[in-house]
Simulated assay, not measured.
Amino acid sequence: MPDSNEKPVSFKELERHFQARKAVNDTPIQIERRFHVQADREPVVKTRLERVDRGDNQLHWEIVVELDGIRAGSRALPPALKGQAVKAERRKVSEDELARQLTSFIPDHLGFNATPVELQKSIKTIREVVGERRVATTIFGTDNRRAFRDTTYPWSTVGLVQTNRGSGSGVMIGPRHLLTVSHVIDWTAPAGFAADWVRFTPSYYDGTAPFGEAYGSHIYWYVKEDGDGFITGDEANFDYVVVVLDRRLGETTGWMGARGYNDDWDDLAVWSHMGYPGDLNGGQRPTWQGGFRVDGTDADAQSILHKADVFPGQSGGPVFGFWDGDVGPRAVAVQSWQTSSNNGASGSMDMRDLVARARSEFA
């Protein structure tokens, strides 16, 4: 187990310290896919299976669900979230103890790759504005984002977050714990609830959901982003939430660990990021970029500056590194905002503490 001051493993050394492996066993997994309906009585449900031939000699199946008794033209939404605001306060346990508690987890049914192996060519679906006045860009120099299909660990832990406000990215940070940004959450919840619905689909790719999906049931936060379209002040430092999911999805996908950022790590080219950018592939495929530097802003609650390439949709995706002695990576921040001079992630010590609280109160 690394101590709190140990530096992350150099990006060039990753595959030496964290060797790729196949799954320990081939145990089939159970997944859930869901949708919601309105009906005046309990619907009658019928299901059937049909083979799908795609010419690749693989066994593809279509699951057909027929529902009888649905109210015509009705729309139904998922459950809203309970929750509570949390006050950032002095930590009651040591950083080394929290590092031991907030470790990562790799299920035996998943393989491991320190960098994704199923890289894909991206299609540019939103192009930059070109004219006499250049708009603020979030791509610095060459675009280094790479789309991927890899479902080994840790690529299995990141997925698409969907809410009433649109979509973003998120990462499993515990057995039933999702880390994402505050500004993707719909805080205009029905009476008696903290926030409206959240759906998480890990390893979402072109509509597929190899690990199923889960919905939020509870939420922890420090600051609610106010929805005005700008991330300013405390919003930039605290633009993250932990959503407790309604089932232990992490036992299927695995999860990343969490760690507070140490400013001694400024300028180390050791960090990676994953997310779902809207300008590539219509936000339907995850992208990855690795080996970039960050610069913390010297506080427990930090905006962590970087020049990794980002676009809306990547918000909530983790900034993470690997430490010798761990089984997998740890997230230190989530992508939050962008300008023409820097991109910014929110995280550090207070983020780690929020994760610790959510994981201790919802095992």
Score class of each variant (00 low, 15 high):
residue 254 G to D: 00
residue 254 G to H: 02
residue 254 G to P: 00
residue 254 G to N: 00
residue 254 G to V: 01
residue 256 M to P: 03
residue 256 M to R: 09
residue 256 M to K: 08
residue 259 R to F: 06
residue 259 R to N: 05
residue 259 R to Y: 07
residue 260 G to T: 08
residue 260 G to P: 06
residue 261 Y to N: 01
residue 261 Y to W: 05
residue 262 N to Y: 12
residue 263 D to Y: 13
residue 264 D to F: 12
residue 264 D to C: 04
residue 264 D to R: 15
residue 265 W to F: 09
residue 265 W to Q: 01
residue 265 W to I: 02
residue 266 D to A: 09
residue 266 D to W: 05
residue 267 D to Q: 13
residue 267 D to F: 08
residue 267 D to S: 14
residue 268 L to Y: 08
residue 269 A to R: 09
residue 270 V to S: 11
residue 271 W to V: 06
residue 272 S to E: 11
residue 273 H to A: 15
residue 273 H to C: 14
residue 274 M to Q: 11
residue 274 M to P: 10
residue 275 G to Q: 07
residue 276 Y to P: 07
residue 276 Y to D: 03
residue 277 P to T: 00
residue 278 G to Q: 08
residue 278 G to M: 03
residue 278 G to R: 06
residue 279 D to N: 14
residue 280 L to S: 04
residue 281 N to F: 09
residue 282 G to S: 15
residue 282 G to F: 14
residue 283 G to Y: 03
residue 284 Q to C: 02
residue 285 R to P: 04
residue 286 P to C: 03
residue 286 P to G: 04
residue 288 W to N: 08
residue 288 W to D: 04
residue 289 Q to S: 07
residue 289 Q to P: 04
residue 290 G to E: 03
residue 290 G to V: 05
residue 291 G to C: 07
residue 291 G to D: 05
residue 292 F to N: 02
residue 293 R to G: 11
residue 293 R to V: 15
residue 294 V to M: 14
residue 295 D to W: 15
residue 297 T to A: 12
residue 297 T to M: 12
residue 297 T to Y: 10
residue 297 T to G: 07
residue 298 D to L: 12
residue 298 D to N: 13
residue 298 D to W: 11
residue 299 A to H: 13
residue 299 A to S: 15
residue 300 D to V: 09
residue 304 I to W: 09
residue 305 L to N: 12
residue 306 H to R: 12
residue 306 H to V: 05
residue 308 A to S: 14
residue 308 A to V: 05
residue 308 A to C: 14
residue 309 D to M: 05
residue 310 V to Q: 07
residue 310 V to G: 04
residue 311 F to S: 08
residue 311 F to M: 03
residue 311 F to G: 00
residue 312 P to K: 02
residue 313 G to L: 09
residue 315 S to T: 11
residue 317 G to D: 01
residue 317 G to Q: 04
residue 318 P to I: 06
residue 318 P to L: 09
residue 318 P to Q: 03
residue 319 V to R: 09
residue 319 V to K: 10
residue 320 F to Y: 13
residue 321 G to Q: 06
residue 321 G to A: 15
residue 321 G to S: 13
residue 323 W to Y: 09
residue 323 W to P: 00
residue 324 D to Q: 10
residue 324 D to R: 06
residue 324 D to H: 03
residue 324 D to C: 01
residue 325 G to E: 04
residue 328 G to F: 06
residue 329 P to G: 10
residue 329 P to C: 10
residue 330 R to I: 12
residue 332 V to Y: 07
residue 332 V to E: 01
residue 333 A to R: 00
residue 333 A to E: 00
residue 333 A to H: 01
residue 334 V to R: 00
residue 334 V to M: 05
residue 334 V to I: 10
residue 334 V to A: 04
